[in-house]
Design a protein around this nucleic acid. Sequence first.
DNA 1: GCCAACGTTGGC
DNA 2: GCCAACGTTGGC
Length: 134
Amino acid sequence: MQHWLVKSEPEKYAWADLVRDGRTMWDGVRNYQARNNMQQMQPGDLVLYYHSVSEKAVVGIAKVEKAAYPDPTTDDPKWVVVDLVPYRAFKEPVTLQQIKEDKRLQDIALLRQSRLSVMPLKAEEFDVLLALGN
DNA sequence: GCCAACGTTGGC
DNA sequence: GCCAACGTTGGC
């Protein structure tokens, strides 16, 4: 199983919206690298949910329910979506500041490539973030 | 609100 | 194929 992190501006689609909806189609990704990462996602993979811009913290864990399929919101065949469901919330959000200060997380794509919106996480990184959030 | 980083577009 | 211009993201 692989681990991932996705970013969302909470003003646009927050963790609470995902919990309320019970399931969402992760659409709107228009970046090749992010798209390529989504194509690697398998059902059951866990996905950390990061609130960008206003909050800057990892707030919960989602799960891939359906692997990549063509994005129905565009006629352009090169874009895909995945379906995500909420898995569980973090007890405490893990802030970008905490991530920056943790030696074990210095290689995380979130820090190295700030604009990437869908990124893989090493199992160790996932475990560290999980421990910080609980 | 500003700006750095970075991806995309289009002229040559 | 290069590169300037431009648009977007996201941290501060």
